[in-house]
Each structure stands twice: as C-alpha cells, then as structure tokens.
Simulated assay, not measured.
Amino acid sequence: MLLLSLFDGKKIPLDNLEHIERNAPDIIVWAAPAMFFFAALEFIISWKQDHKYYEKKETFGSIMVGLGNVVVSALLKATLLYGAVCVYNLIPWRMTLNWWTFLPCYIIFDFCSYWAHRISHAQRFWWATHIAHHSGEHYNLTVSFRLSWVQDLKIIFFLPVAFLGFHPIIIFVVNQIAILFQFWVHTEYIRKMPRFIEYIFATPSNHRVHHGSQEKYIDKNFGATFIFWDRLFGTYQPEEEQVIYGITSPLPKEKKANPLYLNFHEYLDIWKDVKKAKGFRKKCHFIFGSPAGIAMRKKEAAAAR
C-alpha cells in the first residue's frame, strides 16, 4: 500500500507553473552570502599566511563567472521547471511530493552527475561546457563559482532522474544541494579527513586530484558528492604528490579575468580546428574527440614545426 501511494502523484497543471516556481526554494541564493563570507575569510587567512592560494585576476574571473552563472540559472529556472513538469505529467508512475524521496533522488542524481562529469572530460563538445571550472591555476573556494554559463546543456544526462518519476520540486532541491556540496571541497585548508569519509565522499583531498594537470591525476575522481562511483568504475586516484592545478594548455595571463573568454574560448578553438580540418571524419574528431588526446597531438605538431 505504501508503494502504491508513493506512485500516486497527480498531474501538475501547466497553468499552475508560477505557483510551483514560487514554491521551489532558491537555496543557492539563500546560501550565497555564507559562500562569499567563507571565500573572503579564506582569502584573508591565505593572504596573512602568505600561502598564495589566490591570484587577483583569476579570483576576479571566478567571481564574474559565478555571478553570470547565477543570472543564467535564474533566467532558465522557469524553463527547466516547465520541462520537469512536462516529463512528470507524461509518465504514469509519478511520485508524490514526499520529503524522504530526497535521498534516493540524490543518490541517482549523483550517479548521473558522475557520468555527465566523466563524459565532459572524454568528449571535447562537452568539455567546452566544463573547461571554465578547470582553467584556474590556484585552488580555493572561489573555484567553486567557476560554473560554465552553458553547463545546462548537460541536462540531457539527468533526464533519467525525471523519467523515474521524482517530483519536480524534489529534483530542483536535489540539484541545488548537490551544487552547494561542491563548494567546500575546493580548498587547500582541509587536508585528509577520516578514512571512512575519504572512502565514501568527494572530499577536498579527493577533489584536488580531479583538478590536477599531472598525468596520474588527469581524468580521475569524477564523483560530485560520492567518491565510491570512482572506486566502482576504476577512475579513483588518491592524493599523493602535490597537485599542479589548471589545464594542460594554460590560459594567457591577460585573459584570466575575462568571463567571456573563460566561458567560450574552447568553442572558438573548436571552430578554428574544424575549419582547418579536411574531411568530415577529422572535423567530427575535433568536435567529439578526447580533449586530452587532441591537445597532446596539437602540442606534438607544434613542436615538430
């Protein structure tokens, strides 16, 4: 009976979307003051201790990318909710709005996030929606603000969550909590945590590895909240040597504070490569090939000239 009542959700009238939007909490907006406070606190401590975890242009770029992402997310909120409601109304196994459905939704959402993240590193088209987050050469709390303005293209990887029948408000809350979780892992100040936490969660130590540009760290530790996905699928790497942050082809120093460049430079590079490439197959390779492989071949070609 409990299972039957769980899947007894009623269709949401589309003309009631404004009510749903008002009742979908903007958790990230509420949390923003605390996030900026802790980022400012880390900056002050880092400056006083002369740790050089922050760099002026890069930090400004992170903040501008973050503010732009907030604007984009606010503009897309109604559209994304509308889509979630349409899917919810389409399927017959709709779940009712129950608080305890948050946990299974979160776990499944994080599983989808692992694969979306992994594919974002495996195919250049999707890497272009993610590279802004990795282009920083310093690791601090403001790096969590560097979320691409076009990252919502990856919503396609999260459709299974909607088609499982979770209520749109639950999905909306899960998405925001998942984003907020990733704030605290972008710091040098939290080193290794207790072993059982390091084994289950994407801790600062685990996530620092993911931002590393060394060969042993590249394309490792994709888990957003849970690191056991990486252990399960063979992409886990513990933090060993000091991490060197950033991408394998560092950005020009004069561009580090430019949010437009940070968000779209990879698309420009893709366009240039596709224009130069001869043949459909090579053009597709520059769009969907491995970003690491393409970068390596371009470096080798440049060195051979």
Rank of each mutant, 00 (worst) to 15 (best):
L2Q: 09
A24M: 13
D26M: 06
I28A: 01
V29I: 12
P33M: 03
A34L: 15
I44Y: 04
I44N: 01
H51T: 14
H51K: 13
E55V: 03
E58R: 00
F60H: 06
F60P: 00
M64A: 15
V65C: 03
V70G: 03
A74Q: 10
L76F: 14
A78N: 10
L80M: 14
G83H: 05
P92K: 06
F109E: 03
S113Q: 09
S113I: 00
Y114D: 02
W115C: 04
R118T: 06
Q123T: 12
W126F: 15
W127L: 05
H130K: 10
I131W: 02
A132G: 15
A132K: 01
A132T: 15
H133S: 10
H138I: 01
V143G: 01
D152M: 06
F158W: 15
L159M: 14
F163W: 12
Q176V: 06
I179D: 10
W184G: 03
R195V: 12
R195S: 12
R195W: 11
F196C: 12
I197E: 10
S205W: 03
N206T: 11
F222R: 02
F222N: 02
G223V: 07
T225M: 11
I227K: 04
I227R: 01
G234S: 04
E239N: 05
E240I: 15
I244F: 06
Y245N: 05
G246Y: 11
L251R: 00
K255I: 01
K255W: 04
N258M: 07
P259C: 08
N263Y: 10
N263M: 06
H265R: 10
E266L: 07
D269S: 09
D269G: 05
V274N: 07
F280W: 14
K282W: 11
H285P: 03
F286M: 10
F288L: 15
S290I: 06
P291N: 04
A295W: 09
A295K: 13
R297G: 03
